[in-house]
Write a protein that binds this DNA or RNA. Sequence first.
DNA 1: ATGTCACCTGGTAGGTGA
Length: 256
Amino acid sequence: MTQQIATWNVNSLSVRLPQLLAWLVEHPVDVIVLQETKLTDDKFPHAELQAAGYHAQWFGQRTYNGVALLSRQSATDVVRNIPGFADEQARVIAATVDGVRVIGAYFPNGQAPDSDKFGYKMRWLEALRTWVGQELVQHRHLVLLGDFNIAPEDRDVYDPVAWAGQIHCTPQERAHFQDLLALGLVDAFRLFDQAPKSWSWWDYRNLAFRKNQGLRIDHILVSEALRARVSACNIDKAPRKNERPSDHAPVVLTLQ
DNA sequence: ATGTCACCTGGTAGGTGA
């Protein structure tokens, strides 16, 4: 049975809802997790997504952050944010769908390596790792996906020299990414040959998309038990060419 | 290029975060 699981940072679901609905018509994935919905829970467009054929779980807040999980089949055991980690920011939504534990996350940006927000990012990453380790004990078939705000390697950066030591590229962030892999997860995108200079995010400024100056910071990590079922993992650049696009592209995992 | 976009406050611009 083929199954597709996707992630997309939509940068405001109220602005991007028409694009999301159009994309889902062309790509009727089984599950998609969204980041930066920027909506309080009372404003979540549940009816529109239901009409599109999706169950929805959501966890938002005013102005910033906000995540959601849409699924063709109903979702169970829904968790919002990292259990035991007190957090005012809505960044995580997890659920079980069709026997797969799906953890959708909007990792903190961190702003700059010497900022308070970077400290928060480090604490959040530590808490995430501990919790995902526990989840893996309970769920052999697990996917951790979302906007990681980490470019794991230099080949994930259009100008690694300019970005060296900058946010998304610091050794501390990259070590955290490796720590997640060490739990028994694999970066699905790198299971396959990919075109060089494949990015998932392009700054709105500087004509970055036109010049293909981006970063690969949106990731799909799969557990060892799921790895054998992975048949593809791709970034869909097409929505970045839309009028009024999100600055991120969706990433899609295909399971056999 | 400090070059954009989204959202908020509070007001017809400016600040914040990404």
